[in-house]
Design a protein around this nucleic acid. Sequence first.
DNA 1: CTAATAATATACCATTTGGTATATTTTAAA
DNA 2: TTTAAAATATACCAAATGGTATATTATTAG
Lengths: 223, 223
Amino acid sequence: MLILILIEFSKNKIYQSVYFVYICFMQTKSELTKQFILETVAPIFNKNGYAATSMSDLTEATGLTKGAIYGNFKNKETLAIAAFKFTVKALLKRIAKHLELSDSPIQKLFLISDFYRNYYDYSKQLGGCPVLNIGVDANNQNTLLLEHVKIVIEKIQDQIATIIENGIEAGEISTEINAMQYAKRIDTMIQGAVFMTYTMDDEFYIKDTMKQIDQMIHNDLKA
Amino acid sequence: MLILILIEFSKNKIYQSVYFVYICFMQTKSELTKQFILETVAPIFNKNGYAATSMSDLTEATGLTKGAIYGNFKNKETLAIAAFKFTVKALLKRIAKHLELSDSPIQKLFLISDFYRNYYDYSKQLGGCPVLNIGVDANNQNTLLLEHVKIVIEKIQDQIATIIENGIEAGEISTEINAMQYAKRIDTMIQGAVFMTYTMDDEFYIKDTMKQIDQMIHNDLKA
DNA sequence: CTAATAATATACCATTTGGTATATTTTAAA
DNA sequence: TTTAAAATATACCAAATGGTATATTATTAG
């Protein structure tokens, strides 16, 4: 009932459902609006790409006006970058959570392929794979955005490489293995599979590639 | 000297250098213009994507006016599709030529990885990999264009699968191998490598992936 | 409850968009 | 060289673009 009272407190239609959270945890009103804009706008940018997304697409989707959006974000590019970061943050958090299911490095590697096995369904909510979509879209178009994609890719590869290194230290993985090279191989195969799955609209690619990665882990990596 | 005389014959600046060829082999004037538009426009569409390419980009690049372009192509979409086909035709022809270097199916597979080993430099002339760029760009945006990308991917995979099947028949490749599955695996890895190479601007990915494919051919495929 | 401020909506801007009707030029045939 | 047709250039269109100045509304502190 406390929630209802607090809802009544606000005259704004959009935020009513999350207003309780806002009152309790959020800083300012605009912080909440920013959040709302980002989660609404992110999948649109991700789906359409930067140039194919117009500000009117965003005002329609959010139900807000340009005044509200430009009051919270300097311009379209800033918004697109913030949206990309928003999506990636959610994605990386989800992966990290999945990797908590085991402490064993080699099991963590299997958990990575396990995560991507269901990635088609999950990433559709995000408007597609942000790394692939924005990576291709930003190339030759938006240097700043491309830099952010690069950073994300490096981060993912570092994480995989660290897992492999931990596996080597733990004696689970052969000392012959070049951790970063294998991390890059796995990442490259995943991105290829994501591209093929989306373009052909066929999950065979992602399922089969994850099988292949599992085989690699079994045959090449294991000590 | 004959060439010079024929060049003098034309008052149009753009076509002078190829006018001899036109006089001898080409059908109509507009056929030549179409060709010229396509080869100029294709890398622009490929680099920028459909939405980020404006008609004025194309008139500037070609030195022609909208009248000339719309006189030869119904609209922007038709032109983009024709441009994609133009690029892919050149690419597939180049691959086919490279594959002529050997008659042995297993050697042809090695020639595929060999071709893509230098794909970064080559595809830059095309404005990037058309399959990757247009595939991602057209998704959620341009159904017709996406269909054409799908067809190209299927064609490439069929060709690889056929080579593998020929290898099986010739006794070079193990009968255990599922030709189409392996064709798709190879194609998926290539596309992943192309994406990573472009996005990270680092040829490691394409070079290393081709090594990996060669290893696969050696270890898994050979009879 | 009121005043100051923060957040959002409105109305507008010049520029660019894809596309077209028409005028002009270029070409090919007689 | 003249003429019909083909190809291209010009000038224009309404609609949409990203962005902004200002008016209006919500919010918060006193």
